[in-house]
Amino acid sequence: MSEIQNKSVALVTQIEGALADVSPSDRAQSFLERSLDLYFALGGPPEAAAKLVTQARSRAQLRVESAVANVVIELAAASHLSDIDMIQAAYNRLDVELKAERSKK
């Protein structure tokens, strides 16, 4: 795993506890919430969100690795259009959150 992935998993584990007993499907709601945060931050209209869900359900279901790749590609495009480095943005957030979690202990 990459350093950014390891740090991200460490943060989730500090906040939520061990992930050993969690299935990938258990993360689906959290992922959708964070995805919607980005959708709205990019200016996506709320009225279009429900339609997008219906359209997505009508397509063939992708394998997880293909869906993850698609998300990373879209993150790169959104980051580029917003003139930010997506990895640096993640590191900045992780550094703040990990420090905050450590200071709670």
Score class of each variant (00 low, 15 high):
18 A>N: 15
10 A>K: 14
92 N>V: 00
19 L>D: 07
84 I>S: 10
47 E>M: 00
103 S>A: 14
36 L>F: 04
5 Q>M: 12
99 K>R: 14
52 L>Q: 07
3 E>M: 09
97 E>R: 12
70 N>V: 01
33 E>R: 00
102 R>I: 06
81 L>M: 08
29 Q>E: 02
12 V>Y: 15
34 R>S: 07
8 S>R: 09
75 L>N: 08
85 D>H: 10
2 S>F: 01
22 V>M: 14
89 A>C: 09
87 I>W: 06
46 P>F: 11
42 L>Q: 15
42 L>I: 00
44 G>N: 01
23 S>P: 02
16 E>H: 11
85 D>P: 04
34 R>T: 04
57 R>E: 00
2 S>G: 05
22 V>I: 14
28 A>S: 00
37 D>Q: 09
32 L>I: 14
104 K>V: 08
39 Y>L: 04
102 R>P: 05
79 S>K: 07
76 A>C: 03
71 V>D: 02
94 L>Y: 05
43 G>R: 00
69 A>P: 00
61 Q>K: 07
37 D>E: 12
14 Q>G: 05
7 K>Y: 08
20 A>S: 15
10 A>P: 06
51 K>Q: 13
99 K>Y: 04
11 L>I: 07
9 V>Y: 09
87 I>R: 02
30 S>H: 07
66 S>M: 10
70 N>K: 02
69 A>Y: 01
12 V>R: 11
94 L>P: 02
73 I>C: 01
45 P>A: 13
36 L>A: 05
31 F>C: 10
24 P>N: 09
53 V>I: 15
54 T>F: 04
41 A>L: 15
29 Q>H: 03
22 V>S: 09
86 M>T: 09
20 A>F: 13
65 E>N: 12
66 S>Y: 06
94 L>D: 08
83 D>A: 13
92 N>M: 02
26 D>W: 03
47 E>Q: 03
1 M>A: 11
24 P>G: 11
34 R>A: 14
39 Y>N: 03
80 H>L: 12
10 A>N: 15
55 Q>E: 13
80 H>W: 09
79 S>A: 15
94 L>R: 09
94 L>Q: 05
42 L>N: 09
64 V>S: 15
95 D>C: 01
20 A>V: 12
50 A>S: 11
26 D>K: 02
72 V>S: 01
75 L>C: 05
10 A>Q: 13
29 Q>Y: 03
72 V>L: 14
93 R>L: 13
104 K>C: 00
62 L>G: 02
84 I>M: 11
104 K>S: 07
77 A>C: 04
70 N>R: 06
95 D>P: 01
31 F>Y: 06
70 N>D: 08
87 I>F: 13
4 I>W: 02
